[in-house]
Design a binder for these strands. Structure first.
Length: 456
RNA sequence: GGCGGGUUGGCGGAGAGGUUACGCAGCGGAUUGCAAAUCCGUGAAGACCGGUUCGAUUCCGGUACCCGCCUCCA
Protein backbone atom coordinates (compact mmCIF):
# COMPACT_ATOMS: atom_id res chain seq x y z
CA UNK A 1 0.00 0.00 0.00
CA UNK A 2 1.32 3.39 -1.00
CA UNK A 3 1.88 5.67 1.94
CA UNK A 4 0.24 9.05 1.55
CA UNK A 5 1.44 11.96 3.66
CA UNK A 6 -0.61 15.12 4.02
CA UNK A 7 0.00 18.44 5.67
CA UNK A 8 -2.63 18.72 8.40
CA UNK A 9 -3.55 22.29 9.28
CA UNK A 10 -4.83 21.06 12.62
CA UNK A 11 -1.46 19.67 13.74
CA UNK A 12 0.67 21.90 11.49
CA UNK A 13 2.51 18.77 10.49
CA UNK A 14 2.85 16.48 7.56
CA UNK A 15 1.23 13.26 8.73
CA UNK A 16 0.98 9.76 7.36
CA UNK A 17 -2.57 9.38 6.12
CA UNK A 18 -4.42 6.47 7.68
CA UNK A 19 -8.07 6.29 6.72
CA UNK A 20 -10.65 5.48 9.34
CA UNK A 21 -12.01 2.86 6.95
CA UNK A 22 -9.87 1.99 3.92
CA UNK A 23 -12.96 0.55 2.28
CA UNK A 24 -14.60 3.96 2.42
CA UNK A 25 -12.22 6.89 2.47
CA UNK A 26 -14.20 10.07 2.96
CA UNK A 27 -13.38 13.64 2.03
CA UNK A 28 -15.35 16.88 2.12
CA UNK A 29 -14.60 20.05 0.22
CA UNK A 30 -16.33 23.34 0.86
CA UNK A 31 -18.04 24.20 -2.41
CA UNK A 32 -19.32 27.41 -3.90
CA UNK A 33 -22.02 29.83 -2.90
CA UNK A 34 -24.04 29.81 -6.07
CA UNK A 35 -24.79 33.42 -6.89
CA UNK A 36 -22.32 34.02 -9.72
CA UNK A 37 -19.74 32.44 -12.01
CA UNK A 38 -16.83 30.79 -10.25
CA UNK A 39 -13.70 32.88 -10.46
CA UNK A 40 -10.24 31.41 -10.90
CA UNK A 41 -9.59 31.56 -7.17
CA UNK A 42 -12.67 29.43 -6.52
CA UNK A 43 -11.40 26.86 -8.97
CA UNK A 44 -8.02 26.25 -7.37
CA UNK A 45 -9.26 24.05 -4.50
CA UNK A 46 -11.54 22.22 -6.93
CA UNK A 47 -8.61 21.25 -9.16
CA UNK A 48 -6.16 20.62 -6.35
CA UNK A 49 -8.48 18.39 -4.37
CA UNK A 50 -9.65 16.71 -7.54
CA UNK A 51 -6.09 15.41 -7.76
CA UNK A 52 -6.36 14.22 -4.16
CA UNK A 53 -9.60 12.46 -5.08
CA UNK A 54 -7.87 10.79 -8.01
CA UNK A 55 -4.92 9.78 -5.86
CA UNK A 56 -7.15 8.28 -3.18
CA UNK A 57 -9.10 6.39 -5.82
CA UNK A 58 -5.84 5.09 -7.22
CA UNK A 59 -4.57 3.93 -3.85
CA UNK A 60 -7.77 2.67 -2.21
CA UNK A 61 -9.82 1.83 -5.29
CA UNK A 62 -12.28 3.91 -7.23
CA UNK A 63 -15.24 2.45 -5.36
CA UNK A 64 -13.74 3.07 -1.96
CA UNK A 65 -13.61 6.85 -1.87
CA UNK A 66 -16.54 9.14 -1.08
CA UNK A 67 -16.10 12.76 -2.03
CA UNK A 68 -18.63 15.37 -0.96
CA UNK A 69 -18.60 18.92 -2.26
CA UNK A 70 -21.52 21.06 -1.19
CA UNK A 71 -23.48 23.73 -2.99
CA UNK A 72 -24.45 26.67 -0.83
CA UNK A 73 -27.76 27.82 -2.23
CA UNK A 74 -29.01 29.80 0.71
CA UNK A 75 -27.05 32.94 1.37
CA UNK A 76 -27.56 36.67 1.64
CA UNK A 77 -25.55 37.30 -1.52
CA UNK A 78 -28.05 35.17 -3.40
CA UNK A 79 -30.89 37.07 -1.78
CA UNK A 80 -29.27 40.33 -2.78
CA UNK A 81 -28.93 39.20 -6.37
CA UNK A 82 -32.54 38.11 -6.45
CA UNK A 83 -33.64 41.46 -5.08
CA UNK A 84 -31.47 43.32 -7.57
CA UNK A 85 -32.60 41.37 -10.61
CA UNK A 86 -36.16 40.56 -9.63
CA UNK A 87 -35.53 36.92 -10.51
CA UNK A 88 -36.61 33.97 -8.38
CA UNK A 89 -33.89 32.58 -6.14
CA UNK A 90 -34.26 29.06 -7.41
CA UNK A 91 -33.77 30.24 -10.97
CA UNK A 92 -30.55 32.01 -10.00
CA UNK A 93 -29.14 29.10 -8.04
CA UNK A 94 -30.08 26.51 -10.67
CA UNK A 95 -28.49 28.58 -13.39
CA UNK A 96 -25.34 29.19 -11.37
CA UNK A 97 -25.03 25.52 -10.50
CA UNK A 98 -25.28 24.59 -14.17
CA UNK A 99 -22.52 27.11 -14.97
CA UNK A 100 -20.43 25.74 -12.16
CA UNK A 101 -20.74 22.21 -13.44
CA UNK A 102 -19.80 23.27 -16.96
CA UNK A 103 -16.80 25.29 -15.83
CA UNK A 104 -15.42 22.71 -13.44
CA UNK A 105 -15.89 19.98 -16.03
CA UNK A 106 -13.93 22.12 -18.46
CA UNK A 107 -11.09 22.07 -15.93
CA UNK A 108 -11.22 18.30 -15.90
CA UNK A 109 -12.57 17.98 -12.37
CA UNK A 110 -14.34 14.70 -11.72
CA UNK A 111 -17.82 14.90 -10.30
CA UNK A 112 -17.88 14.40 -6.55
CA UNK A 113 -19.75 11.42 -5.20
CA UNK A 114 -22.31 13.75 -3.64
CA UNK A 115 -23.09 17.41 -4.21
CA UNK A 116 -25.62 18.27 -1.54
CA UNK A 117 -27.57 21.51 -1.76
CA UNK A 118 -27.90 23.31 1.53
CA UNK A 119 -31.62 23.85 1.04
CA UNK A 120 -32.13 20.09 0.93
CA UNK A 121 -30.68 19.75 4.44
CA UNK A 122 -32.53 22.40 6.39
CA UNK A 123 -34.18 19.72 8.52
CA UNK A 124 -30.83 18.23 9.46
CA UNK A 125 -29.53 21.68 10.33
CA UNK A 126 -32.50 22.41 12.59
CA UNK A 127 -31.98 19.08 14.29
CA UNK A 128 -28.33 19.78 14.89
CA UNK A 129 -29.08 23.24 16.26
CA UNK A 130 -31.62 21.73 18.66
CA UNK A 131 -28.98 19.28 19.86
CA UNK A 132 -26.56 22.12 20.43
CA UNK A 133 -29.12 24.01 22.47
CA UNK A 134 -29.97 20.93 24.51
CA UNK A 135 -26.36 20.24 25.30
CA UNK A 136 -25.77 23.84 26.33
CA UNK A 137 -23.58 24.90 23.42
CA UNK A 138 -26.09 27.22 21.83
CA UNK A 139 -28.83 29.58 22.90
CA UNK A 140 -31.82 31.23 21.33
CA UNK A 141 -32.20 34.97 21.59
CA UNK A 142 -34.49 37.35 19.74
CA UNK A 143 -35.28 34.94 16.93
CA UNK A 144 -31.61 34.06 16.53
CA UNK A 145 -29.75 31.01 17.69
CA UNK A 146 -26.13 31.56 18.56
CA UNK A 147 -23.27 29.22 19.23
CA UNK A 148 -21.67 29.85 22.59
CA UNK A 149 -17.95 29.86 21.84
CA UNK A 150 -17.08 29.89 25.53
CA UNK A 151 -18.73 26.49 25.86
CA UNK A 152 -16.11 24.91 23.60
CA UNK A 153 -12.65 25.28 25.12
CA UNK A 154 -10.95 24.18 21.91
CA UNK A 155 -12.47 27.04 19.95
CA UNK A 156 -9.66 28.65 17.97
CA UNK A 157 -7.37 25.68 17.90
CA UNK A 158 -7.47 25.12 14.17
CA UNK A 159 -6.50 28.67 13.40
CA UNK A 160 -4.17 29.02 16.35
CA UNK A 161 -5.89 31.76 18.26
CA UNK A 162 -7.81 32.15 21.44
CA UNK A 163 -11.19 33.77 21.83
CA UNK A 164 -9.58 36.52 23.89
CA UNK A 165 -6.97 37.20 21.22
CA UNK A 166 -9.65 37.52 18.62
CA UNK A 167 -11.78 39.90 20.58
CA UNK A 168 -8.75 42.04 21.39
CA UNK A 169 -7.87 42.97 17.84
CA UNK A 170 -10.80 42.08 15.70
CA UNK A 171 -13.77 43.95 14.51
CA UNK A 172 -16.60 41.74 15.57
CA UNK A 173 -20.23 42.29 15.04
CA UNK A 174 -21.61 43.62 18.27
CA UNK A 175 -25.15 42.50 18.86
CA UNK A 176 -27.09 42.90 22.06
CA UNK A 177 -28.32 39.32 21.96
CA UNK A 178 -24.82 37.84 21.94
CA UNK A 179 -23.38 36.53 25.18
CA UNK A 180 -19.90 36.85 23.77
CA UNK A 181 -18.87 39.01 20.83
CA UNK A 182 -17.38 35.96 19.11
CA UNK A 183 -20.58 33.93 19.29
CA UNK A 184 -21.76 33.18 15.78
CA UNK A 185 -25.15 32.67 14.23
CA UNK A 186 -26.63 29.23 13.73
CA UNK A 187 -30.07 30.48 12.81
CA UNK A 188 -31.46 33.90 12.03
CA UNK A 189 -34.93 35.27 11.41
CA UNK A 190 -36.10 35.87 7.84
CA UNK A 191 -38.12 38.93 7.08
CA UNK A 192 -40.69 38.89 4.31
CA UNK A 193 -39.28 38.40 0.83
CA UNK A 194 -36.28 36.43 2.04
CA UNK A 195 -36.14 32.64 1.99
CA UNK A 196 -37.13 31.11 5.27
CA UNK A 197 -38.20 27.91 6.90
CA UNK A 198 -40.31 27.26 9.95
CA UNK A 199 -38.30 26.30 12.98
CA UNK A 200 -38.63 26.16 16.76
CA UNK A 201 -37.23 29.72 16.76
CA UNK A 202 -39.63 31.10 14.23
CA UNK A 203 -39.49 31.61 10.49
CA UNK A 204 -35.85 31.92 9.55
CA UNK A 205 -32.79 30.61 7.76
CA UNK A 206 -29.53 28.97 8.74
CA UNK A 207 -26.27 30.73 9.37
CA UNK A 208 -23.46 30.04 6.96
CA UNK A 209 -21.45 27.46 8.88
CA UNK A 210 -24.08 25.01 10.04
CA UNK A 211 -24.79 23.64 6.58
CA UNK A 212 -21.36 22.04 6.21
CA UNK A 213 -21.63 20.47 9.64
CA UNK A 214 -25.07 19.08 8.86
CA UNK A 215 -24.28 17.86 5.37
CA UNK A 216 -20.94 16.28 6.19
CA UNK A 217 -22.62 14.46 9.06
CA UNK A 218 -25.49 13.28 6.88
CA UNK A 219 -23.28 12.02 4.07
CA UNK A 220 -19.98 11.11 5.71
CA UNK A 221 -20.83 10.51 9.34
CA UNK A 222 -19.69 12.07 12.58
CA UNK A 223 -16.07 11.24 11.85
CA UNK A 224 -14.42 11.26 8.46
CA UNK A 225 -10.98 11.53 6.95
CA UNK A 226 -10.30 14.78 5.15
CA UNK A 227 -11.88 18.20 5.17
CA UNK A 228 -10.50 20.64 2.65
CA UNK A 229 -10.91 24.18 1.43
CA UNK A 230 -9.17 27.47 0.85
CA UNK A 231 -7.02 28.90 3.63
CA UNK A 232 -9.40 31.84 3.86
CA UNK A 233 -11.98 29.42 5.22
CA UNK A 234 -9.74 28.32 8.08
CA UNK A 235 -11.24 31.07 10.14
CA UNK A 236 -14.03 31.52 10.85
CA UNK A 237 -15.79 28.96 8.69
CA UNK A 238 -13.85 25.81 9.54
CA UNK A 239 -13.31 26.83 13.11
CA UNK A 240 -17.04 27.17 13.49
CA UNK A 241 -17.71 23.89 11.75
CA UNK A 242 -15.41 22.15 14.19
CA UNK A 243 -17.15 23.78 17.12
CA UNK A 244 -20.62 22.82 15.91
CA UNK A 245 -19.82 19.28 14.88
CA UNK A 246 -17.63 18.49 17.86
CA UNK A 247 -20.26 19.70 20.29
CA UNK A 248 -23.15 18.04 18.49
CA UNK A 249 -21.30 14.74 18.28
CA UNK A 250 -18.90 14.71 21.22
CA UNK A 251 -15.97 12.35 21.09
CA UNK A 252 -16.38 11.49 17.43
CA UNK A 253 -13.48 13.59 16.24
CA UNK A 254 -15.13 15.12 13.15
CA UNK A 255 -12.58 15.59 10.36
CA UNK A 256 -9.19 14.07 11.02
CA UNK A 257 -7.13 15.90 8.46
CA UNK A 258 -7.69 19.52 7.53
CA UNK A 259 -6.17 20.65 4.27
CA UNK A 260 -6.04 24.23 3.07
CA UNK A 261 -4.85 25.60 -0.21
CA UNK A 262 -3.17 28.99 -0.32
CA UNK A 263 -4.64 31.89 -2.22
CA UNK A 264 -4.25 32.88 -5.81
CA UNK A 265 -2.89 36.08 -7.23
CA UNK A 266 -2.99 37.53 -10.72
CA UNK A 267 0.24 38.88 -12.20
CA UNK A 268 1.63 39.24 -8.69
CA UNK A 269 -1.33 41.09 -7.23
CA UNK A 270 -4.36 40.12 -5.30
CA UNK A 271 -7.21 39.45 -7.65
CA UNK A 272 -9.88 42.04 -7.13
CA UNK A 273 -12.58 43.70 -9.12
CA UNK A 274 -11.18 47.12 -8.34
CA UNK A 275 -7.77 46.28 -9.80
CA UNK A 276 -9.41 44.99 -12.94
CA UNK A 277 -7.62 41.67 -12.70
CA UNK A 278 -10.64 39.67 -11.72
CA UNK A 279 -11.35 36.67 -13.94
CA UNK A 280 -13.90 33.95 -13.89
CA UNK A 281 -13.05 30.54 -15.25
CA UNK A 282 -15.50 31.25 -18.04
CA UNK A 283 -13.64 34.46 -18.93
CA UNK A 284 -10.46 32.48 -19.49
CA UNK A 285 -12.22 29.75 -21.44
CA UNK A 286 -13.86 32.38 -23.61
CA UNK A 287 -10.46 33.93 -24.25
CA UNK A 288 -9.54 30.62 -25.81
CA UNK A 289 -7.45 29.31 -22.96
CA UNK A 290 -8.31 25.62 -22.77
CA UNK A 291 -9.45 24.20 -19.45
CA UNK A 292 -6.64 21.70 -19.52
CA UNK A 293 -4.14 24.55 -19.74
CA UNK A 294 -5.73 26.30 -16.77
CA UNK A 295 -5.55 23.05 -14.87
CA UNK A 296 -1.88 22.59 -15.73
CA UNK A 297 -1.10 26.10 -14.49
CA UNK A 298 -2.81 25.38 -11.19
CA UNK A 299 -0.91 22.13 -10.74
CA UNK A 300 2.42 23.78 -11.47
CA UNK A 301 2.47 25.30 -8.00
CA UNK A 302 2.16 23.34 -4.78
CA UNK A 303 -1.27 23.92 -3.29
CA UNK A 304 0.19 25.14 -0.01
CA UNK A 305 1.88 28.12 -1.62
CA UNK A 306 0.34 31.24 -3.05
CA UNK A 307 -0.13 30.80 -6.78
CA UNK A 308 0.32 33.53 -9.31
CA UNK A 309 -1.81 33.36 -12.43
CA UNK A 310 0.05 34.87 -15.36
CA UNK A 311 -0.46 34.73 -19.09
CA UNK A 312 3.15 33.61 -19.43
CA UNK A 313 2.39 30.54 -17.38
CA UNK A 314 -0.64 29.78 -19.47
CA UNK A 315 1.47 29.99 -22.62
CA UNK A 316 4.14 27.73 -21.18
CA UNK A 317 1.57 25.20 -20.00
CA UNK A 318 -0.09 25.19 -23.37
CA UNK A 319 3.22 24.56 -25.15
CA UNK A 320 4.05 21.67 -22.85
CA UNK A 321 0.64 20.08 -23.19
CA UNK A 322 0.73 20.45 -26.94
CA UNK A 323 4.10 18.77 -27.04
CA UNK A 324 2.99 15.93 -24.78
CA UNK A 325 -0.25 15.45 -26.65
CA UNK A 326 1.75 15.14 -29.84
CA UNK A 327 3.91 12.50 -28.23
CA UNK A 328 1.15 10.36 -26.75
CA UNK A 329 -1.24 10.57 -29.71
CA UNK A 330 -2.35 7.05 -30.48
CA UNK A 331 -0.40 5.59 -27.58
CA UNK A 332 -2.33 3.39 -25.17
CA UNK A 333 -1.77 4.26 -21.52
CA UNK A 334 0.32 1.96 -19.39
CA UNK A 335 -1.56 -0.18 -16.90
CA UNK A 336 -0.28 1.86 -13.96
CA UNK A 337 1.10 5.36 -13.45
CA UNK A 338 4.84 5.73 -12.96
CA UNK A 339 6.03 5.26 -9.36
CA UNK A 340 7.80 8.62 -9.40
CA UNK A 341 4.57 10.41 -10.20
CA UNK A 342 2.59 8.53 -7.57
CA UNK A 343 5.35 9.16 -5.03
CA UNK A 344 5.32 12.89 -5.71
CA UNK A 345 1.55 13.10 -5.30
CA UNK A 346 1.61 10.89 -2.22
CA UNK A 347 4.01 13.40 -0.66
CA UNK A 348 1.41 15.98 0.28
CA UNK A 349 0.12 16.36 -3.24
CA UNK A 350 3.33 17.59 -4.80
CA UNK A 351 1.80 18.27 -8.18
CA UNK A 352 4.75 20.36 -9.34
CA UNK A 353 7.07 17.46 -8.55
CA UNK A 354 4.71 15.11 -10.36
CA UNK A 355 4.82 17.31 -13.45
CA UNK A 356 8.62 17.25 -13.31
CA UNK A 357 8.38 13.46 -13.24
CA UNK A 358 6.13 13.62 -16.31
CA UNK A 359 8.83 15.59 -18.10
CA UNK A 360 11.27 12.82 -17.26
CA UNK A 361 8.95 10.19 -18.68
CA UNK A 362 8.59 12.22 -21.85
CA UNK A 363 12.36 12.61 -22.13
CA UNK A 364 12.88 8.90 -21.64
CA UNK A 365 10.29 8.11 -24.27
CA UNK A 366 8.06 6.23 -21.86
CA UNK A 367 4.93 7.48 -23.58
CA UNK A 368 2.56 4.85 -22.22
CA UNK A 369 3.81 5.72 -18.74
CA UNK A 370 3.48 9.41 -19.45
CA UNK A 371 -0.11 8.98 -20.48
CA UNK A 372 -1.09 6.79 -17.54
CA UNK A 373 0.70 9.06 -15.09
CA UNK A 374 -0.75 12.26 -16.51
CA UNK A 375 -4.21 10.77 -16.04
CA UNK A 376 -3.61 10.72 -12.31
CA UNK A 377 -3.28 14.50 -12.58
CA UNK A 378 -6.28 14.74 -14.87
CA UNK A 379 -4.09 15.67 -17.83
CA UNK A 380 -3.73 14.31 -21.37
CA UNK A 381 -7.06 12.57 -21.22
CA UNK A 382 -8.99 12.11 -24.44
CA UNK A 383 -12.01 14.02 -23.25
CA UNK A 384 -10.03 17.22 -22.77
CA UNK A 385 -7.84 17.13 -25.84
CA UNK A 386 -10.11 18.75 -28.41
CA UNK A 387 -8.33 22.06 -28.18
CA UNK A 388 -4.99 20.58 -29.25
CA UNK A 389 -6.25 18.77 -32.33
CA UNK A 390 -4.83 20.03 -35.55
CA UNK A 391 -7.28 20.39 -38.39
CA UNK A 392 -7.27 17.76 -41.10
CA UNK A 393 -6.08 19.49 -44.23
CA UNK A 394 -4.59 18.31 -47.46
CA UNK A 395 -1.37 20.23 -47.96
CA UNK A 396 0.01 17.93 -50.63
CA UNK A 397 -0.32 20.45 -53.46
CA UNK A 398 1.56 23.11 -51.55
CA UNK A 399 4.11 20.58 -50.42
CA UNK A 400 4.79 19.60 -54.01
CA UNK A 401 4.97 23.22 -55.12
CA UNK A 402 7.45 24.10 -52.41
CA UNK A 403 9.51 21.03 -53.18
CA UNK A 404 9.63 21.93 -56.87
CA UNK A 405 10.62 25.53 -56.17
CA UNK A 406 13.30 24.32 -53.83
CA UNK A 407 14.56 21.81 -56.35
CA UNK A 408 14.92 24.58 -58.91
CA UNK A 409 16.52 26.91 -56.39
CA UNK A 410 19.10 24.34 -55.49
CA UNK A 411 20.29 24.53 -59.08
CA UNK A 412 19.90 28.27 -59.62
CA UNK A 413 21.09 29.29 -56.14
CA UNK A 414 18.25 31.78 -56.08
CA UNK A 415 16.09 30.93 -53.11
CA UNK A 416 13.89 34.03 -53.16
CA UNK A 417 10.81 32.23 -54.49
CA UNK A 418 11.25 29.40 -51.99
CA UNK A 419 11.61 31.83 -49.10
CA UNK A 420 8.58 33.79 -50.22
CA UNK A 421 6.36 30.72 -50.23
CA UNK A 422 7.88 29.53 -46.98
CA UNK A 423 7.15 32.74 -45.12
CA UNK A 424 3.65 32.84 -46.56
CA UNK A 425 3.05 29.33 -45.27
CA UNK A 426 4.48 30.19 -41.89
CA UNK A 427 2.27 33.25 -41.83
CA UNK A 428 -0.69 30.93 -42.20
CA UNK A 429 0.47 28.93 -39.21
CA UNK A 430 1.96 26.07 -41.17
CA UNK A 431 5.11 24.48 -39.86
CA UNK A 432 7.63 24.12 -42.67
CA UNK A 433 10.20 21.36 -42.46
CA UNK A 434 12.81 21.03 -45.16
CA UNK A 435 15.52 18.45 -45.11
CA UNK A 436 17.55 16.34 -47.47
CA UNK A 437 14.70 13.86 -47.42
CA UNK A 438 12.27 16.44 -48.76
CA UNK A 439 9.65 18.94 -47.74
CA UNK A 440 7.03 18.44 -45.04
CA UNK A 441 4.17 20.77 -44.14
CA UNK A 442 2.25 20.51 -40.88
CA UNK A 443 -0.60 22.66 -39.64
CA UNK A 444 0.52 24.32 -36.41
CA UNK A 445 -1.42 25.75 -33.47
CA UNK A 446 -1.96 29.07 -35.25
CA UNK A 447 -3.07 27.41 -38.48
CA UNK A 448 -5.37 29.66 -40.48
CA UNK A 449 -6.93 28.03 -43.57
CA UNK A 450 -8.18 31.42 -44.81
CA UNK A 451 -4.64 32.70 -45.27
CA UNK A 452 -3.81 29.51 -47.10
CA UNK A 453 -6.53 30.21 -49.65
CA UNK A 454 -4.63 33.27 -50.82
CA UNK A 455 -1.73 31.05 -51.83
CA UNK A 456 -3.77 28.95 -54.21
C1' G B 1 -2.79 44.69 17.33
C1' G B 2 -3.51 38.97 16.96
C1' C B 3 -2.72 34.55 13.76
C1' G B 4 -0.56 32.30 9.50
C1' G B 5 2.25 31.78 4.74
C1' G B 6 6.28 33.26 1.63
C1' U B 7 11.43 35.02 0.03
C1' U B 8 15.57 29.45 -4.58
C1' G B 9 19.51 30.53 -10.96
C1' G B 10 17.01 35.40 -16.53
C1' C B 11 11.71 33.48 -15.56
C1' G B 12 8.57 29.60 -13.44
C1' G B 13 9.18 26.04 -9.67
C1' A B 14 10.45 21.22 -6.47
C1' G B 15 13.20 17.91 -3.40
C1' A B 16 17.19 16.80 -0.19
C1' G B 17 21.98 18.34 5.88
C1' G B 18 27.05 16.54 1.93
C1' U B 19 26.11 13.91 -4.67
C1' U B 20 22.16 16.97 -11.89
C1' A B 21 15.70 18.88 -9.68
C1' C B 22 12.71 19.75 -13.67
C1' G B 23 10.54 23.15 -17.46
C1' C B 24 11.01 27.66 -20.35
C1' A B 25 14.56 31.15 -22.04
C1' G B 26 20.07 31.74 -23.06
C1' C B 27 24.69 29.90 -24.96
C1' G B 28 27.71 26.08 -27.94
C1' G B 29 27.33 22.06 -31.42
C1' A B 30 24.91 18.46 -34.92
C1' U B 31 21.36 18.99 -38.80
C1' U B 32 19.39 22.78 -42.72
C1' G B 33 20.52 26.51 -48.99
C1' C B 34 18.58 29.70 -44.68
C1' A B 35 15.18 28.44 -41.06
C1' A B 36 11.82 25.49 -38.19
C1' A B 37 11.54 20.96 -35.67
C1' U B 38 14.65 17.46 -33.41
C1' C B 39 19.05 15.68 -30.96
C1' C B 40 23.67 16.41 -28.00
C1' G B 41 26.22 19.55 -24.65
C1' U B 42 26.46 23.84 -21.23
C1' G B 43 26.74 28.32 -17.73
C1' A B 44 23.62 30.13 -13.86
C1' A B 45 20.54 29.95 -7.35
C1' G B 46 18.51 29.75 -2.65
C1' A B 47 16.62 37.80 0.99
C1' C B 48 19.98 39.36 5.17
C1' C B 49 22.54 38.41 10.09
C1' G B 50 23.87 34.91 13.65
C1' G B 51 23.80 29.70 15.77
C1' U B 52 24.15 24.14 15.60
C1' U B 53 27.39 20.90 12.45
C1' C B 54 33.27 18.19 9.86
C1' G B 55 29.69 20.41 6.36
C1' A B 56 23.27 24.21 5.56
C1' U B 57 20.20 26.88 0.45
C1' U B 58 18.10 22.54 3.59
C1' C B 59 17.74 22.50 11.04
C1' C B 60 17.36 26.69 15.04
C1' G B 61 17.05 32.06 16.40
C1' G B 62 16.70 37.03 14.76
C1' U B 63 16.12 41.08 10.90
C1' A B 64 14.03 42.96 6.40
C1' C B 65 10.52 42.82 2.73
C1' C B 66 6.02 40.64 0.41
C1' C B 67 1.25 38.27 0.98
C1' G B 68 -3.14 36.37 3.36
C1' C B 69 -6.82 35.81 7.40
C1' C B 70 -9.05 38.19 11.69
C1' U B 71 -14.79 42.02 8.08
C1' C B 72 -19.23 40.46 2.77
C1' C B 73 -15.65 38.41 -0.42
C1' A B 74 -11.88 32.40 -1.94
Amino acid sequence: MIQIRLQNTKSRRKEVFEPIDPANVRMYLCGPTVYDRAHIGNARPVVVFDVLFRLLRHVYGADHVTYVRNLTDVDDKINAKAAATGRPIREITDETIAWYHQDMAALGALSPTHEPRATDYIGEMILMIEELITSGHAYAAQGHVLFDVRSFPEYGRLSGRSVDDMIAGARVEVAPYKRDPMDFVLWKPSEAGVPGWDSPWGHGRPGWHIECSAMSHALLGAAFDIHAGGIDLQFPHHENEIAQSSCAHPGCGFARVWMHNEMLQVEGKKMSKSLGNFFTVRDLLDQGIPGEVIRMVYLGTHYGKPMDWTTDKAKAAEATLRKWRGLVAGVAPARAPAPAVVAALADDLNTAGAIAALHELAAQGDLAGLRASAALLGLLEDAMGGWAEVPEVDLSDLTARLADLRQAAMASKDFSAVDALKSALMGAGVEVRMSKAGVELLPGPEFDPARLEALK
